[in-house]
Write a protein that binds this DNA or RNA. Structure first.
Lengths: 119, 119
DNA sequence: AGAACACTTGAACAATTGTTCAAGTAATAA
DNA sequence: TTATTACTTGAACAATTGTTCAAGTGTTCT
């Protein structure tokens, strides 16, 4: 009878490396925040919204026209961006104008753009 | 009897603004690539993988240990990162070592980190 | 006050994603 | 050659996401 179990958990791990990199790991909450920002930007329609709003503020109706989406769908996407503090809005009469809440997002966007259009 | 329909499609749109921003929109494919990169980074486990690999190359087993995930789950996530060319691997005997494929990703990561830990 | 406009919201539903499980592959060891 | 190790892969399944639809705000106009 041979020993069974306790295989991979013990055998192949490089403990020094594991302990080394573990020390520099960020807090769980920071990791979640980072993933959350990236996730918010991880949809073509939201990428377009960011790109449009990077140029100038626009109302929901204009965005819907530009994106070829329903008002409702755009509003839902804006809500996602709003809750992550990526966009903000101001109301002027009946019209709601959205704009970027944070200039840093444009930097993040542009850096990704550089990467994609491989420099 | 009043006119019905053709409401929002015609009424509230600011045509000048729409045309202005539309001119500077990127190609559909570029948009998709950008969204795809962000989406790949939009998961806490993959964010951690990037963070770990930014320090040094690691085998799948070490990553599984660090993440508290099964080998299979880690392998699937690495596949997602691999297909986007965010990580690469080399095989040494039975062990497969993963590392970052592109230093730019670390810049993107760090910029997002700066944003999250609000500068 | 009532009607119209420019949205917002919640529920429902399809599509996508992440994990597990079982089976498969490539390399080394016995 | 067979067994073992270190993964990889495909199918299945639950959880999450994005859209639509219907109903609801808040503001202006009449």
């Amino acid at each position: 009878m041979k020993k069974v179990l306790d295989r991979c958990e013990v055998v192949c791990i490089n403990h020094e490396a594991v302990n080394r990199v573990r020390e520099k790991m960020l807090d769980e909450e920071v990791i979640r925040s980072i993933a959350d920002i990236f996730k918010a930007l991880g949809d073509p329609n939201r990428v377009k919204i960011i790109r449009y709003l990077a140029q100038e503020e626009l109302c929901v109706c204009d965005l819907a026209q530009l994106l070829g989406m329903s008002l409702s769908a755009v509003s839902h996407q804006l809500r996602a961006l709003r809750s992550r503090r990526l966009v903000k809005f101001r109301r002027q009469g009946k019209i709601v104008y959205y704009s970027l809440d944070d200039a840093h997002i444009v930097d993040l966007f542009n850096q990704c753009l550089d990467h994609v259009t491989h420099d």
